[in-house]
Nucleic acid binder design. Sequence first.
DNA 1: TCAACAGTTTAGAATCGTTCTAAAGAAACC
DNA 2: GGTTTCTTTAGAACGATTCTAAACTGTTGA
Lengths: 153, 153
Amino acid sequence: MRERPYKHALDLLQRAGLRPTKQRLALARFLFDGHDRHVTAEQLHARALEDRVSVSLATVYNTLHQFTRAGLLREVVVDANRSYFDTNTSEHHHFFHEKTGELQDIRDVVVANLPQPPAGARIARVDVVVRLDDTDESGDVVTHSGPADRADI
Amino acid sequence: MRERPYKHALDLLQRAGLRPTKQRLALARFLFDGHDRHVTAEQLHARALEDRVSVSLATVYNTLHQFTRAGLLREVVVDANRSYFDTNTSEHHHFFHEKTGELQDIRDVVVANLPQPPAGARIARVDVVVRLDDTDESGDVVTHSGPADRADI
DNA sequence: TCAACAGTTTAGAATCGTTCTAAAGAAACC
DNA sequence: GGTTTCTTTAGAACGATTCTAAACTGTTGA
């Protein structure tokens, strides 16, 4: 994961059949540095500008969609107001912290007893979103024995 | 479920502490007629106009949110482009037909092995969205023995 | 090397769903 | 009825996203 970022990003672009432009390279280098990330277009744009990479918001959107089509990213729908893109494209699910808008990958969730899809349809994907609240406005400490062990719903 | 729609709607509004205006009554009568419905604001608005109930889109939005706050509806986030409101407020999950934008309730899904939420957070809700594709552009018949039985993911 | 084409970026306009605003209208209360 | 409070509404405003058309850049091949 600590590999030569330029080379790695270049590689990904080439495999996706995308010309390695300055903008795409910069975005890819940031997105695919080995961390699992959940970014919105605005966040990624801001980040690029911080790094003094001049790129327009339109290009950020284009690039995110191209990367998604290429299977490098996965779009996560959790919030009606913004789209998140996840650099982790393997099977997994999410905690979504409603207050902060933060997403967090969770693994090993088991979904069972799904009904058969209607005729003519096929399951494309199963998404589990666990929405999180703050425990308590009073600032109480969380005793780690609480509820939330009743994993079934 | 076949009860006097006026009375039932009136009742719901009263219990929710909302003045029974013409608009709210009309929307409530349609929404809570005993069927499970998944509506967008636009759809509900169009439907009201068909029924010759004059109501503005702003009021439809207001009303949907008021009903949601009152626990009469549940907002479902499945599509980045529109909000759905579900008249079924009990524990259940959804099939989402990506092509048509249709939602369908599914019951009895089991979600297990959820990790503990991070300290300070509490699970507010678990949403399972099963995204559906068309089986096949060639129009093949679905043999009901196919995949989609491997319910775990 | 360079022309020429195809793919890319961009600013800004446009779009779309949704929310806001301020004023007019209706329900509730005395 | 008069007054207060809640509702509705048209239209403006908004924020995220997409589109447009023109400028730009990578690539290819002579």
